[in-house]
């Protein structure tokens, strides 16, 4: 099994931080340093992603899931840690150590991101087709006719009616906006797709449609996916492996069926037993 991505001891601290909270052996008050009051949103997280697998990240609100995803997509500068992508310089260069120009190239060519809030990922007042094309232009495409064709194909794939491609996402329902975001995220066939609570807040039938499309895309393109959710049902349906986060740290990691049927950590047990 080939390794696609590797993250080493990644930390994101909101605030100054001090010697006490920099040592991950020292206990915090939840995720807050009792000395300097900094919030350690992500604390020494290491994980690996392998080819064509879906990795689930679960945890309660405020456990650092979104911060982790944003750090991996260069939206937040991590306080410490490194990450390697097999598709970037054969996985030999820490992607956090390269220039911002290089990081932009990685983001445009090797990563796709779907945010929980469509406002983060889309320009709400530009046409939906234009939003998808933006990613293509960023990746170096210049042929307008080819881009139009690709955009239409992607949106059609995500079941956005072709006669609405020119409409801005602000006219769309939440589920449709998420589907436009997914089209945009996969536009240039990235090897790694990051999904942050993509179905939260959508009604059941729309959620089902979005999940089916994600599964289909993952199988067809054979990409690796990290999917963040607080919803165990989503994780059970999508992911092969799962990590459980609590207060910025990973407390448990294993096959999804093992996490759900034989959880070891008290927090995972609480989570699983709270499943309706």
């Amino acid at each position: 099994m080939d390794q696609i991505m590797k993250v080493n001891e990644l930390s994101v601290v909101y605030g100054k931080g001090c010697d006490y909270c920099r040592d991950s052996n020292n206990p915090l008050e939840k995720n807050r340093c009792p000395h300097c009051m900094a919030v350690c949103a992500v604390r020494d997280i290491s994980l690996e992603l392998y080819d064509s697998e879906i990795l689930g990240v679960v945890g309660e609100s405020g456990s650092g899931k979104t911060t982790l995803m944003k750090a991996l997509y260069f939206d937040i500068i991590p306080t410490k840690g490194s990450a390697y992508l097999a598709a970037y310089n054969n996985g030999e260069t820490d992607i956090f150590s390269v220039s911002s120009q290089q990081q932009r190239a990685i983001r445009n060519n090797l990563l796709g991101m779907v945010y929980q809030n469509p406002v983060m990922g889309l320009l709400m007042n530009y046409s939906s087709g234009g939003n998808v094309a933006q990613k293509l232009i960023a990746a170096g495409h210049r042929n307008v006719a080819a881009m139009q064709e690709r955009t239409a194909q992607l949106l059609d794939h995500m079941e956005i009616p072709l006669n609405r491609v020119k409409e801005p996402p602000r006219n769309f329902s939440g589920g449709m906006q998420q589907r436009v975001q997914i089209s945009k995220a996969i536009a240039n066939n990235p090897p790694v797709l990051l999904l942050d609570e993509v179905t939260t807040g959508l009604d059941l039938s729309v959620q089902a449609k979005v999940l089916d499309l994600i599964r289909m895309v993952q199988k067809q393109l054979n990409i690796s996916v990290i999917v963040v959710s607080h919803d165990l049902a989503v994780i059970r349906m999508l992911s092969d492996r799962t990590v459980v986060m609590l207060d910025g740290q990973i407390v448990e990691h294993g096959f999804t069926d093992q996490i759900l049927e034989d959880p070891q950590h008290w927090f995972t047990q609480t989570l699983v037993h709270s499943l309706i």
């Binding site: 294993g254 096959f255 069926d257 093992q258 049927e261 034989d262 070891q264």
Partner: peptide, 9 residues
């Protein structure tokens, strides 16, 4: 059976 399949540790 679950121990063998890895569903149980």
């Amino acid at each position: 059976l679950k121990c063998i399949y890895g569903t149980y540790l």
